[in-house]
Structure formats: C-alpha cells, structure tokens
Amino acid sequence: MKMKFTYGLKRGLPIALGYLSVSFGFGISAVGAGLSPWQAVLISLMNVTSAGQQAGVAVMAAAGTAIEMMLTQLVINLRYSLMGIALTQKLSGKFTFLHRLLCAFGITDEVFVMAASEEETITPAYMYGLIALPILGWTLGTALGAYAGQILPAALCSALGLAIYAMFVAIVVPPAKENRGVLYAVLISVALSCILYYVPFLKVHISQGFAIILCAVIASALMAYLMPRKEDEADA
C-alpha cells in the first residue's frame, strides 16, 4: 500500500515547482493589469487554475459583469468536470463525501494527470498529499511574481516558462513509448490542437480551455472506438 500522504507529497513536488514559474508569470501579468499584489495572490489561492485566472483578470480589468465572469470560467474550466468524473472511477472506498468536497478544490490538469496515471486506487491521504504542494507553489509563485517580478532577469523568467510544459512531456512520453493506444491518442490530440491553434478563424472563436476539451474528447473517443483495450488491461 504505497498510496500514502508522503507518496502524494512526493508526486506533487515537481508539479509545485512547475507551478512556481507559471504562477510567477501570472503574478507579473495580474499586477500589470492593475491588481494589487495581494489581490493577485488571493485569486491564485482561491482558484488554482492558470487559463481561468488569466481570463478572469481580463474580465476584472475590463470591469466586466458577474455573468460574464461566470460564463468565462464555465467554458474555460469545464474540463475539470470531465477530469473529476474520470477520477471517481479510481477512488478507493475510503473517499467519503467530505473527502470528495475537500479534494475537489485541488483538481488541476497536472494533479488529474498524475492521479489518473497511478497504478493503484486513489486514497484520500494520497490526494491531500498530491494537492498540498501544488496549491502552495501556485500561491507562492504568484506572490513572488507580483512583488518581485521586476527583479529577476527577463531571460531567466522566460526560460522558466518552459518548466510546466517540459513536465507534461516527461509525463506523457514514457507511457506513449510503451502503449500504442496512448501514443495514437496523444498524436491525434496534438494534431487537432494544432489545427485549432493555427487555423485563424478557429483560434479567434475557441478559447484554450475549450480547445483542450474538444481535442481530448475527440482523440480519446476515437481511440476507445478504434483500439479498445484488452480485458486484463482495462481492469488494472
């Protein structure tokens, strides 16, 4: 039984470090948009999501309405609903309703992928460990960026922007090497993502959060249809 709190912490550490640099950038841009540093920090602590916050600050800066804010967040963050449903299929029996209420707060793209790619069922202790450091890193990075963004050399800041993506690559390459289905799912999703990004009309009309849902749903459905996994694989 390795799904303990400390194991979760260990798995969350690289996510937290990646978040430090990404939220650092968010801190800088939020202050640039007119928020005070502590306002930026509060947004990160209460939302823990990159694209949604970026869009949220834009709504704030444009003095948008509450309805506008709600719809923006709904569209960009809807992917978390899909991820939440996927995770419920891996939860251990120890996950009471209260644990679910608390852990739901920490479901981010990276946390989801990490938890979903674990071999064993997910315990509450593991989940608390997994989300603890990323939330801390996300909030701390925002504070650093908001208060000290101007101090670090620009070249270093921009190189750090790569951290989170490099981590994604590190998560996805090993299973794609082993499993043909995973490889194809990733390649299809990447191809769709490029189409949505580079075709001018599509890019203007589809937000990044929604684009991710679209690509992932189409690629996964296609692979589930074309390449159903064997019985023994699917029960793992």
């Binding site: 899909l82 793209d109 993506y165 794609a176 995973v182 799912a185 999703s189 991710i212 589930a224």
Partner: peptide, 12 residues
C-alpha cells in the same frame, strides 16, 4: 483511460 494523455498532448 485515454483522456489524461490526450489532455496533456493538447495542452503541450
């Protein structure tokens, strides 16, 4: 099962 990997691909 495929969703997390597809999500990562599209995000990267």
């Amino acid at each position: 099962y495929y969703v997390p990997y597809a999500v990562l691909g599209a995000m990267t």
